[in-house]
Every structure is written in structure tokens, then in C-alpha cells.
Amino acid sequence: MQSQILHFPAKEAMIIGQQTGDRTISNRLADTADSLQGAAERSNALDSGHRACQGCGEALGARHAIDTALDTTDGELVVVNATGCLEVFSTPYPQSAWRTPWIHSLFGNAAAVASGVAQSFRIQGKENVRVIAQGGDGGTTDIGMGCLSGMFERNEDVLYICYNNEAYMNTGVQRSSQTPGAARTATTMPVGEHPGNRFGTGKSVPKIAMAHGIPYVATANIANPRDLEAKVRKAMSIRGARYIEVFVPCPLGWGTASCDTIKVARQALNCGLTPLYEAEYGEITAVNKIAPSETVGAYLKSQRRFAHVFKRGNEHQLEAIQAIADANIRAFDLVESK
């Protein structure tokens, strides 16, 4: 196995000063890389040469997550992948980009396949081998929901990571249950009385996961890689069913510049639309505070899928999205009180 064995103290990494805070990949003031993604020895579990689009958020999220899991398990890791962009761009025969045991079965069954893998290793007495299932929002929250729920309620020893880019990107950007209100997709075009996706639809799978009472649920965002790493580490320190949903922009599907992937993710984070939190056994245990430095408008403006929101007559759409952000800020108490 080529995975390097590295142990970084997750969030406890010493931040000597405030130069870069804990927002950059590494704190330059620390003598050695204080995050795995800043380490020269990171595994690069998802290798170069994969065929993800330029600026792919999912590719990035997956490498961050799987590298971290490899680190926490000394490389004793198996990855189960749902059908989707991540699967297609990483393993077109004869070029696999995965440097870890990896299996893809179907679109909707990653959670069940992973359950089987976990049980298989358990019964073989190899409980040191840990299992991650991963997929996009379509494979996870729509077609994979049954298997996912089963995995949760059986409390299988699997960490399921959903890379949420809010639509079916692999098939050409169709609406999923994670597509936000007003967003344009190929199946929610900006025409008619309610341009883009309807408001009042969709679901929160982290909350559904919490309702299963599983040991650990977290939301993460590729714009906060240290937090993502810490959450994967935390998840890997726990046995039983765990769920992490990582917010990953899709330049192609969202109509953003390929260079703006992190920027857009950060805007979403800082305007309150994508709260970051952790929950254990159904109860929220931590919420990442935000400094609301970005407006919902700025976030939407970066993306062509929301272009119609700024047309005359659609002001109510912007207001509706702002209301969602405001509701999040209230519900999760997102803003640091001074």
C-alpha cells in the first residue's frame, strides 16, 4: 500500500499567531505543515490525470476527505463509490485515479455495498480496515436514500460522505432534491411563473441522518479545508454510521468560473446559506460561527444558474433566498455575538 502514514493533530494544530489564522491550508508560522493537505507527504488518494472538469469542487473535496481518512487509518481504508461524476472521471478504463482499494457498484447502492464491505471485514476480524462510502447528492439523497437510511438505522460502521453540488451533474445538470430554490437546471429552466427550481422543495439529509440517531453527522465546505479535515478525523475516530455532507461547487453546473470554486463555496458559507455544524446521536454539538462578510446577493451573482434572479420582476426570489439564509442564521445562531 502506497499510502503514507502521517498523524496530524487535527484542529489542535498550534496556531502561533494571526498571520493567516487557520483559514489557509497551512499556517506558515508553524514549523511544519499543520494540515494534511499542506503536507508534502499527503497520499493524493485521487491521483493526477483524473478527468474532472477544470476547478472541480468534488474532486477536491474527495481528495481532502480520502487523504484524511487514509491518514487516520494508516492506509487501512476501502472506498465505495456511487455512480456519478466522481466515479466516471476517476476510473475510465484503463486509467484509475484511485490509490486506495475502491469499488463502484451502482448509482443508488453505495451505502448498502459499504455496509456489506464493513460486515465482511468485521467477520474476517479485520476491524482495522475502515470503510467510506461516497457519492454526489443525487446518488446519496435521492436514488440512494433507501440504502443510506438502512445503513444509518443499522448503525453500520461506515462513514458516508456526500459531495453536494446541488444537482445531477454527470447527466447534464438536472434537478436533485438538493437543488436550491430558483436555481436553473436542465429540468428547472428559468421560464414561466416560477423561474428555476421551485421554492419549498428539497430536504436536509444531515437532519434526516440526525433523526436516525447515528453517532456522528457533520456538514462541511470545501472552502474550509481545515474544518473538513477535522470532521473527517472526528468521524474516523468513531465507530458506527457517520455522515458528512461536503458542499462542493460545480463550475459547469452552476455557471461559475473554474477559478472561483473556492470563492463561491466561501460566499455560500459566509452568507449563511450553508451552515456548518456537527451532531452526535441526533443532537447538534457544534456550530461554526460565521462573520457574515458575504451577502446572499454576491453569492448568487457569481453563478449563472441564478442569473434570472436579478432580472426585474424576480426580486421576490432574491428575497426568498435571503430569507433562507436569515432563517439559518437564526436557527443555528451562526453569527458570533460580540
Partner: peptide, 8 residues
């Protein structure tokens, strides 16, 4: 699906 994972 579980069989697939287990057997794999």
C-alpha cells in the same frame, strides 16, 4: 448490494 460489498 450488501452481498456485492461483502463478496468484494
Amino acid at each position: 448490494s450488501a452481498c456485492i460489498g461483502s463478496s468484494a
